[in-house]
């Protein structure tokens, strides 16, 4: 999952990014002004945008309206010190999905972020099960055949993305776009490395592999509807 934070208070943006990375293993991009924020939001396929309203150069609401005008369906959480009912109504009516006022509780913020991402992938239940695999996206616990599986951060990130898109063929480009922030250095076969690590930990030696490779298209978990 990849999140964009548009917030002009650098320290606050950094704290939020840190919390997101540590508790959700999302990839996080930070933008410190409205102009850059709008550019980032329009050019990358984010799974969530955390948006401040009073931004240098371009106002937050303007970014939001531009996004929606371009047909973007990305969930947007407004995080602002503007706390009047009027502001909240205006924010939601401009196309945001959630509204949180500063100062906020980090736990609540993270929970709202996760809920918004679940909704995007049409998975209201935080626990996603595919066959004998169960992934709790809230607590990041993975069990396979009833046994807990220990995964590294990037492995979990990949598995969560694939599981949330169960039944869909996911291309390598999509995986790269959704799992890495723009500072990350990627190399061409990084995905293969993590996929093989996952296969090793989850279904080693199974005649019917959990993660299947679709030639020239990508990877898929679960049955592909025909």
């Amino acid at each position: 999952m990849r999140v964009l934070i548009v917030e002009d208070e650098a320290r606050l943006a950094r704290n939020v990014a840190k919390a997101l990375k540590e508790t959700t293993s999302y990839a996080v991009d930070i933008s410190l002004d409205g102009e850059d924020g709008r550019h980032q939001a329009l050019s990358n396929p984010y799974d969530l945008i955390v948006l401040d309203l009073m931004l240098p150069k371009v106002d937050g609401l303007e970014i939001l309206r531009d996004l929606r005008r371009h047909g973007s369906r990305v969930p947007v959480l407004i995080l602002t010190a503007k706390d009047t009912t009027q502001d909240i109504v205006q924010g939601l009516n401009s196309g945001s999905d959630d509204y949180l006022t500063k100062p906020f509780d980090m736990g609540e913020f993270l929970a709202r972020c996760k809920a918004l991402v679940r909704r995007t992938y049409d998975r209201p239940d935080p626990v996603v099960s595919v066959g004998e695999l169960s992934v709790d996206t809230a607590s990041r616990r993975v069990t396979f055949r009833g046994q807990p599986v220990s995964l590294r951060a990037m492995e979990y990130r990949l598995l969560e993305y694939l599981v949330l898109r169960t039944g869909q063929v996911v291309s390598k480009e999509e995986i790269l776009e959704h799992l890495y922030d723009f500072n990350a250095e990627t190399f061409s076969n990084v995905i293969e490395v993590y996929v093989s690590a996952l296969r090793r930990k989850l279904d080693a030696g199974s005649p019917c592999p959990l993660i299947r490779t679709v030639r020239n298209q990508g990877y898929v978990i679960g049955d592909v509807p025909t």
């Binding site: 208070e9 320290r11 606050l12 704290n15 006022t101 500063k102 906020f104 980090m106």
Partner: peptide, 10 residues
């Protein structure tokens, strides 16, 4: 609120 939000988040 803004400095409060920063402190709380920190």
């Amino acid at each position: 609120r803004t400095p409060l939000a920063i402190m709380k988040s920190t």
